[in-house]
C-alpha cells in the first residue's frame, strides 16, 4: 500500500461546484463611492487573496455585492455564493456571515474552512469601510 496516497483536490458539493464553475457578480468591481465599501482579506503569498465590495442603497439595505478572489475552489465558490445572499440585507445582518456559516451553507468539507477565512475578513473589512452604516 502506498505510504502517502496522492491527495485529491477537495470535492465540492453540487451548489459550491456550480458557483466555482459559474461565478456570480464577478464581472468587475464597482467604482469607488461613499455608498460602496471595499475590503481585502488574505494575501497573495498564502495563496488566497480576496477583495469584497458591498453597495448600500438609499434606504439602508445592501443592493449590490462584487468580489474578486484568487483562491482555492472553495474560496471562489464562497465569494460567489455570498455575493448573492447580501442584497436585501442590512449591513448589520451581513455581519452575521462567518466562514463557518458559509461553509455549512455550501456543505463544504471542514478542511476547506481555512480557505474561507479571507472571504469573511474581506466582507467584514468592506462593511467597516462603509460610510453610511
Amino acid at each position: 500500500m502506498p505510504k502517502s496516497p496522492r491527495p485529491r483536490p477537495l470535492e465540492l458539493a453540487a451548489l459550491a461546484r456550480d458557483h466555482f464553475a459559474h461565478p456570480r457578480n464577478a464581472a468587475g468591481l464597482l467604482e469607488p463611492a461613499p455608498e460602496v465599501g471595499t475590503g481585502v482579506g488574505g494575501r497573495v503569498q498564502s495563496g488566497t487573496y480576496v477583495v469584497f465590495q458591498v453597495r448600500v442603497a438609499a434606504e439602508g439595505c445592501i443592493d449590490a455585492a462584487r468580489w474578486e478572489c484568487m483562491g482555492a475552489p472553495a474560496a471562489i465558490a464562497a465569494s460567489s455564493w455570498l455575493s448573492e445572499q447580501l442584497p436585501g440585507c442590512s449591513p448589520e445582518q451581513a455581519r452575521a456571515w462567518t466562514a463557518l456559516g458559509i461553509g455549512d451553507a455550501l456543505h463544504l468539507e471542514p478542511e476547506a474552512l481555512s480557505a474561507l477565512l479571507p472571504v469573511e475578513d474581506a466582507l467584514k473589512a468592506a462593511l467597516d469601510a462603509l460610510d453610511v452604516e
Partner: peptide
C-alpha cells in the same frame, strides 16, 4: 492563480500539479 483552483480546472490532464513529485 491559486494552485488548488488550477488543479481543479485541469482535473484529468496528465501533468503533475502543485509540486510535481512532491505533490503527494
Amino acid at each position: 492563480v491559486n494552485g488548488d483552483a488550477l488543479q481543479a480546472e485541469l482535473d484529468g490532464l496528465g501533468v503533475s500539479a502543485g509540486s510535481a513529485c512532491s505533490s503527494s
